[in-house]
Simulated assay, not measured.
Amino acid sequence: MAISPPSAAASPEAFLASARVDPAVYELRPDYRAMLLAVDGLVPGPSDEGTDALLRAAEKAAVDAVGSSAPEQLPHIAAWREAYRSFGAKPQRTRNSLEALVRRAIGPGLPRVNRLTDVYNAISVLHQIPLGGEDLTAYDGAPRLIRATGTEAFDTTAGGEDVVEHPDAGEVVWCDDAGVTCRRWNWRQTRRTQLSDQTLTAFFILDALDPMSDEALVAAADDLVARLSLSTPTLRVVQRLLRAGAA
């Protein structure tokens, strides 16, 4: 039986139960897995000493990982570059979120945005995985990963102005009933669902391709939850793993 898309007031359990990945995406990358987390009871706020220390650790880890080579030679970044090419994106122009963060980490440094964003950016770099975080209550309907028709709306900014763009036909995008929430798999998120200093319930997406193992994916999710729990010991977390062939 089909599950009706949740409203913004839906429970975290219902929200994750409604999430899906279109088979057309798995046709591009059968090895794709998405670990989804709905996290309720967060304590939001500005960047602080704790998140700054975590970001500095991530910056050092990135420098050590890259060494004398180039970021695109790291195995997980290379895998995402290949995935971008599979739907027609040029990875040297539109970098996957992991590569963009690693490049920032090795210079000039990772951004300090707010407590929640700082934590998930650091975990992304430390575990070498694309990781997005959004305000769950800003969603309109179910989250789904599809290949775009090109007509979907994407609320963003360009040149300091608010604009509505549209993805390329065939582009891999996360969306809900209101439009695109993240373009090019994990390249750029919409303004509508971005985390803020007022976010209490968040939706996190951890993207995995080979050679990342299931064990490494679970470890990244566990680390994210552990870091968020430092400021909220009573955090409520619901998680779901999406993969090809799974219900």
Score class of each variant (00 low, 15 high):
80 W>K: 04
81 R>M: 10
81 R>Y: 12
81 R>V: 01
82 E>W: 09
83 A>M: 10
83 A>S: 10
83 A>E: 09
83 A>Y: 08
84 Y>F: 15
84 Y>R: 15
84 Y>G: 12
85 R>F: 00
85 R>K: 13
86 S>F: 00
86 S>T: 12
86 S>G: 01
87 F>N: 08
87 F>T: 10
87 F>L: 09
88 G>I: 10
89 A>D: 14
89 A>E: 12
89 A>G: 02
90 K>I: 08
90 K>W: 02
90 K>Y: 08
91 P>G: 10
93 R>C: 06
94 T>I: 07
94 T>F: 12
95 R>M: 13
95 R>K: 15
95 R>P: 00
95 R>Y: 04
96 N>C: 13
96 N>A: 09
97 S>N: 11
97 S>V: 03
97 S>A: 13
98 L>Y: 00
98 L>V: 02
98 L>T: 03
99 E>V: 00
99 E>M: 05
99 E>Q: 10
100 A>T: 07
101 L>M: 13
102 V>E: 06
102 V>R: 12
102 V>D: 05
102 V>F: 02
102 V>S: 07
103 R>S: 03
104 R>P: 00
104 R>L: 09
104 R>M: 06
105 A>L: 08
107 G>H: 14
107 G>V: 04
107 G>R: 13
107 G>F: 07
107 G>T: 06
108 P>E: 05
108 P>A: 06
109 G>D: 08
109 G>T: 07
111 P>G: 02
112 R>N: 12
112 R>I: 02
112 R>T: 11
112 R>D: 14
113 V>T: 14
113 V>A: 15
114 N>S: 11
115 R>W: 13
115 R>K: 11
116 L>N: 05
116 L>K: 08
117 T>C: 09
117 T>L: 01
119 V>S: 09
119 V>I: 15
120 Y>T: 01
120 Y>A: 06
120 Y>V: 02
120 Y>E: 06
121 N>F: 12
121 N>C: 14
122 A>M: 04
123 I>V: 13
123 I>Y: 05
124 S>I: 01
124 S>Y: 06
125 V>Y: 09
126 L>D: 02
126 L>F: 01
126 L>M: 08
126 L>Y: 02
127 H>I: 00
127 H>L: 04
128 Q>F: 08
128 Q>N: 03
130 P>Y: 04
131 L>N: 13
132 G>C: 05
132 G>M: 07
132 G>D: 00
133 G>N: 09
134 E>S: 12
135 D>K: 05
135 D>V: 00
135 D>C: 07
135 D>Y: 02
136 L>P: 03
136 L>D: 08
136 L>T: 06
137 T>A: 14
141 G>W: 08
141 G>A: 09
141 G>K: 08
142 A>R: 15
142 A>G: 04
142 A>V: 07
142 A>Q: 14
142 A>D: 09
144 R>D: 13
144 R>F: 01
144 R>I: 05
145 L>M: 15
146 I>C: 06
146 I>R: 14
146 I>V: 15
147 R>T: 11
147 R>Q: 15
147 R>C: 12
147 R>H: 03
148 A>C: 11
148 A>V: 07
148 A>S: 14
149 T>R: 12
149 T>E: 14
149 T>V: 05
150 G>P: 02
150 G>E: 12
151 T>C: 04
151 T>D: 13
152 E>P: 00
152 E>K: 10
152 E>M: 01
152 E>F: 07
153 A>N: 15
154 F>Y: 14
154 F>G: 13
154 F>D: 11
